[in-house]
Computed example of a mutant assay.
Amino acid sequence: TKTEDSFKIETVEENNEVHTFTYTKGDDYMMIDGEKVSVEIDYEVEKELTDSSSPKLLKASAWTPKYMSTGSVKISKTVKTLGTLVGVIGGTISIAALSGVTIATSTIASTVGHWASAVGLGTIAAGYAFNGKIQFKQYRTTGLVSTGYGKKLYAFRFQDVRAIGTLKGKKMDKQLKSVGSWFFNSKPY
């Protein structure tokens, strides 16, 4: 369940074991099965290009994407089950979703599930720390574009949304979404 400022995720494993993940916007932690787990949210914002002396060979369309920032949500949590691992990564993505990043739950489950299979369920069951982050890049249109309601604004979108992390030396760097949909917002971050 998701509100404008918070979310709650429940994952249910095949053996009916339930894991609960909750987060409220602005907090520097997420609750995982009643345990407080620190999260770090970071944005690297690109400075506006002010050098107008460089020659422009082709005029860009107003819809041409312009890189704005890279954001990430970092988390470290010991996991002992696949459901907890999927929930930790899904919960981290949900924190990013409060900024507008959207990923289908099925994409998260299948991507993380395939990687976890390569790691080995025995390794996960041994209880190692998963150290990872969800990273995403934000772009905006080069120019103002029509909203369809008689106004022109910049449009924004997220691209190259990735799940990056390690579990007992096994590295994960999986793209969850290459290009998101354009959206309008007067303040992108």
Results as ranks from 00 to 15, higher is better:
Tyr149His: 14
Lys59Ile: 14
Ala104Trp: 09
Asp173His: 12
Tyr149Asp: 13
Lys36Val: 09
Val45Leu: 09
Glu40Cys: 10
Gly180Pro: 01
Asp5Met: 06
Pro55His: 11
Thr102Asp: 04
Ile95Thr: 02
Thr81Asp: 06
Leu98Ser: 03
Met68Tyr: 04
Leu82Cys: 04
Leu49Cys: 13
Thr22Trp: 02
Ser99Asn: 10
Thr24Lys: 04
Thr84Met: 09
Val112Gln: 00
Tyr67Thr: 07
Ser72Trp: 03
Gly143Leu: 05
Tyr128His: 14
Thr3Phe: 06
Tyr189Lys: 13
Lys59Asp: 12
Asn131Phe: 14
Gly169Gln: 09
Thr92Tyr: 02
Lys133Arg: 15
Lys56Phe: 13
Gly150Glu: 07
Asp51Leu: 13
Thr81Leu: 05
Val37Phe: 02
Val73Asp: 00
Ser110Pro: 06
Ser52Trp: 11
Thr11Cys: 04
Lys8Phe: 05
Gln138His: 08
Gly132Val: 04
Phe184Cys: 04
Tyr128Ile: 07
Lys36Phe: 14
Pro55Met: 15
Gly132Ile: 02
Gly169Leu: 11
Gly180Trp: 00
Thr142Ile: 14
Thr142Lys: 15
Ile75Asp: 01
Val145Ala: 07
Gly180Leu: 01
Thr1His: 13
Val73Arg: 00
Gly150Met: 11
Glu17Tyr: 06
Asp160Ile: 04
Thr3Met: 05
Lys47Val: 11
Thr78Ala: 15
Gly122Tyr: 08
Ser94Thr: 03
Gly165Leu: 02
Lys66Glu: 14
Ala116Cys: 12
Thr92Pro: 00
Gly87Cys: 06
Thr3Arg: 12
Tyr67Lys: 10
Leu153Tyr: 03
Ile89Met: 04
Tyr128Pro: 01
Glu10Gln: 08
Ala126His: 11
Thr64Leu: 13
Phe7Ile: 08
Val86Asn: 02
Tyr43Ser: 06
Glu35Ser: 13
Val86Trp: 01
Gly26Ser: 09
Gln135Glu: 13
Lys174Arg: 15
Ser106Tyr: 08
Asp28Leu: 07
Ala163Ser: 12
Gly87Trp: 00
Gly91Lys: 01
Met172Pro: 01
Ser52Pro: 06
Glu48Thr: 10
